[in-house]
Design a protein around this nucleic acid. Sequence first.
DNA 1: ATGGCCAACGAAGTTGGA
Length: 265
Amino acid sequence: MKIATWNVNSIRTRKEIVANWLKANPVDVLCLQETKVVDEDFPRSQFESLGYHIYISGQKSYNGVAIFSLKPLEDVSTGFTPLLGSEKVENFDEQKRVITGILDGIRIVNLYIPNGSEVGSEKYEYKLRWMKVLKEYLRSHLAKPPHNLCVCGDLNITPDDRDIHDPKNKEKSIAASPRERAALQDVLEIGLADAFRKFTSEGGHYSWWDYRHSGFIRNHGWRIDIHYLTPNLYEKATNCWIDVEPRKLEKPSDHAPVIVEIGID
DNA sequence: ATGGCCAACGAAGTTGGA
């Protein structure tokens, strides 16, 4: 089974690129972030004609997540509230950043973690609070069948210095600051491991490059689009890679898709 | 170098991204 994750930075702007990619790479599941469109205006037909079932949670202008799956998903839900109740999650579900469903005994959780803007800002504190709720949310999923999690998406945090092209000033840099990395590690304590790092240990592999500064040409990027797996799935993972090809196209997303292959039918 | 790019919204400039 192949599960891909891709921050497309507007599905309406990127629909041709995404559809063409799926034709060449017919993954079982594609998790999208930053769809940036309300559900009524989501360009469904282009992807349904490729055989995908489509599950979406969008909003106007910002955020928005979706899952495409060749087979129907079970137990689909959006946001934290269905598991945790509204009193535990402040107003987090106003921003559409979480969608999940089950496929063949795997609970797939698609996340668009808040960016955080600048270290120390109000949005940064929001991000850190969001991470605490995320941990409870994932723990609740893990306690229920099928007890196998694939947590993927745009995590907006680099796990370590191998995942940023220039670690200088990282303490003050959003997505690399110590409190963000500690918050991520705290979430992973429930029992999640980075699928990409099972196969590739060196640095220099990125999933996001700034549109500015010729970031892609110079490979000045960050690896922030990640699959985390529970141990049973981690053992079964047979490959995980970043497909940089779509980043070379005209009007690309600033992120590249990342694919994990798990050795089950 | 307090920047450069890109998208949404809406019809010019602001907000957000990471």
